[in-house]
């Protein structure tokens, strides 16, 4: 390495550092707000430390505070059954992710590697689904789910996203396209069918993109709000985002319970941070032995 490059590296490190700060500051602000006393917040808008440090907001989110306590701290009068909602969110996000990624990978493989008439036209059609405004889909889908008798069931929440999303197919197709054909042709010559190539070759070789997609799908599904709000309102299927929506808007003009909202957001994001750290290790590992590098 030349001297020039190491100057470049220093600048690069500084850039990265600045980006990390910009990324993290709002999180610090959320933490600071979450540990503050909601009723004291407006009076100390510029305090960098929590205002009247308290765990009250976290207690409200976890459903440990009584309704009277919660209201005295500027919170809502709704009860929160945190662990149940957490379980529901885990169920919904996990099933959605597994189904969606798996089915999308199959379709993406068909679009990237199999030869069949009209393939590119069909792909273009699928791609067009990416552009369908959600305003078209929400109401008919809701009516369909209702007619299927799936309101207030996990199936109703999961079904629309379980089979595919245009994004997932598009994403994986682009990666499958860049996989070296020679390996595949070699496998073909060895007599492997498409199924074996798909499971034995394509999937392992695309471990990194698939894991990336799975994480993104999981996050999206976890954060989904409006659809589960419409379909799954009852306690036993209510997901975390819907339940925590109560921290967001109460009366039309009233401000939200800021401390509670921030605590709720942080707690809701926590499982995914854990998940990401666990998965990210696997991604790097899988790159190590996937053989194309």
């Amino acid at each position: 390495m030349t001297r020039q490059v190491s100057v470049g590296r220093t600048v690069a490190w500084i850039l990265l550092f600045v980006l990390l700060i910009v990324t993290l500051f709002p999180f610090y602000w959320m933490l600071r707000t979450a540990f503050s006393d909601n009723t004291q917040l407006p009076g100390h808008p510029n305090s960098l430390l929590p205002v009247e440090t308290t765990l009250g907001a976290f207690k409200r989110v976890l459903g440990l505070a009584s309704i009277e306590e919660a209201q005295a701290q500027g919170g809502s009068g709704a009860a929160v059954n945190f662990w149940l909602y957490l379980r529901n969110s885990l169920v919904v996000a996990t099933i959605t992710t597994v189904c969606q990624v798996f089915f999308s990978a199959m379709a993406a493989y068909a679009f990237a590697r199999l030869r069949w008439p009209g393939r590119d036209k069909v792909f273009a059609l699928f791609l067009a689904a990416l552009m369908v405004p959600p305003i078209f889909t929400t109401l008919p889908n809701f009516v369909l789910i209702k007619n299927l008798g799936l309101l207030n069931s996990f199936a109703g929440i999961i079904l629309p996203g379980a089979f595919m999303t245009p994004f997932a197919i598009f994403f994986l197709r682009q990666f499958f396209l860049s996989i070296n054909r020679e390996l595949e042709e070699a496998a073909m010559i060895d007599g492997a069918g498409h199924r074996r190539i798909f499971f034995g070759l394509i999937i392992p070789m695309s471990a990194a993109p698939i894991a990336t997609l799975a994480i993104l799908t999981y996050i999206n599904s976890w954060n989904d709000y409006f659809w589960p709000l419409l379909v799954g309102q009852q306690e036993n299927v209510r997901v975390l985002t819907v339940a925590l929506g109560v921290f967001r808007s109460q009366t039309p003009q009233g401000g939200p319970d800021w401390a509670g909202l921030m605590a709720a957001t942080l707690i809701a994001a926590l499982p995914m941070i854990i998940l990401f750290l666990a998965f990210a290790k696997r991604i790097t590992n899988s790159i190590g032995f996937s053989g194309i590098k």
Binding site: L20, T23, L24, P26, I219, N223, T265, A269, M272, F276
Partner: peptide, 11 residues
Amino acid sequence: RAVILAPYLVA
């Protein structure tokens, strides 16, 4: 990597 993705975790 986790930090960079963190904003996306928030709705």
